[in-house]
């Protein structure tokens, strides 16, 4: 046994080429979640496209990514090889968890993918349009129960924004948080709640099968091939997407940042990455550089306002 182990160590040491890891990507979540999948897909694509020789993925799970970002900001300062995956959920989690480390403490590179929110009702529901739902909400906010993901997450934020846009007190919404997309979907299908709100992808196959009725989506323009109005054209000024991004370490030089940015420009255009997004069902909402930084600042500001309105952040 001992011989075997020694032999395998030697063999392994010799088999590994002697170059250093090019990028190490932190997924601030446990293996398997959305961020982890993004990190591991990036790993595969960056290596396959020869943008990077060897990419490592590290998982630091906990508290909506706030544990990961804190560790990333403190330990990787100035390291041009360190990357971190993150997303919109982190924006809310940083606020609700009162995290001392925020997205200002890392260097955002690019928004990679995103998913729009969809508002649905069971097919048997008497609510036919988003207008019906808003009318019911105005009449008695408590009587409209919304099923969605965890409290303070994207679904909850979107619900608050809708109520606010409709002129209803966001603290009065009857939002029922479920522990996962699956559980929420089951409650909606079983007509346990009035309406459901979650990423469009979660509902897509149910909508196609006719067991859920899609009332509206939260995108800027109508989604291609989807027969539903946007919230905006329904006179509710709400545009929100649950995006995922990649960020670099704080304290890197402008050249280092530009180099990373160039690598991701290359990745975005590559066939491998496009193919990955297609098989995973991720929408390409790529946005990089100053445009992304501006959008990020906007997202953070609007999220803070609505979380205060709902009462989740003081």
């Amino acid at each position: 046994m001992k011989h075997f182990i020694l032999a395998s160590i030697l063999a392994g040491a010799m088999a590994l080429p002697a170059y250093a890891a090019d990028y190490s990507i932190m997924a601030p979540a446990a293996p398997g979640g959305g961020w982890d999948q993004t990190a591991r897909s990036l790993q595969t694509a960056l290596q396959k496209e020869k943008i990077s020789n060897r990419v490592q993925v590290m998982n630091v799970p906990g508290a909506g990514g706030t544990i990961g970002i804190a560790q990333f900001a403190s330990q990787q300062k100035g390291n041009p090889n360190a990357l971190m995956v993150g997303g919109y959920v982190m924006v809310g989690a940083i606020l609700t968890n009162k995290s001392p480390v925020t997205l200002k403490d890392v260097t955002p590179i690019a928004r990679l993918t995103g998913e729009y929110e969809a508002i649905v009702v069971p097919a048997s529901s008497e609510i036919k349009t988003i207008g019906d739902l808003v009318a019911k909400l105005k009449e008695n906010p408590g009587a409209v129960s919304w099923g969605g993901g965890s409290a303070g997450g994207t679904d909850h934020i979107a619900t608050g924004l809708i109520a606010k846009a409709a002129g209803v007190d966001p603290t009065k919404i009857n939002y029922i948080a479920f522990s996962g997309g699956g559980e929420a979907l089951a409650a909606i299908l079983g007509s346990q709640v009035t309406a459901g709100i979650s990423s469009f992808g979660e509902f897509e196959s149910q909508i196609k099968a006719g067991s859920l009725r899609l009332l509206a989506v939260s995108s800027e323009q109508r989604i291609q091939g989807v027969d539903a109005p946007t919230l905006k054209e329904s006179k509710l000024d709400v545009v929100i997407q649950n995006w995922r991004m990649v960020a670099a370490a704080p304290g890197i030089s402008a050249e280092q940042k530009a180099a990373i940015l160039a690598d991701f420009e290359k990745l975005e255009k590559s066939a491998t990455w496009q193919e990955t997004m297609k098989t995973k069902g991720w929408a390409d909402t790529y946005l990089a550089g100053p445009a992304f930084e501006e959008q990020l600042a906007k997202d953070i500001a609007s999220t803070e306002t609505i979380l205060k309105d709902i009462g989740l952040v003081k």
């Binding site: 398997g32 996962g180 699956g182 089951a186 897509e204 196959s205």
Partner: peptide, 28 residues
């Protein structure tokens, strides 16, 4: 039958199925 991932394992499996071109749901 519903495309409902009801556990962490099921969520991973859903990701796996998509890789094989299998889109779980009522029509599957």
């Amino acid at each position: 039958t519903l495309g409902l991932p009801t556990s962490a394992t099921a969520a991973i499996m859903l990701a796996g199925f998509q890789q094989y071109g299998l889109q779980p749901g009522p029509l599957l």
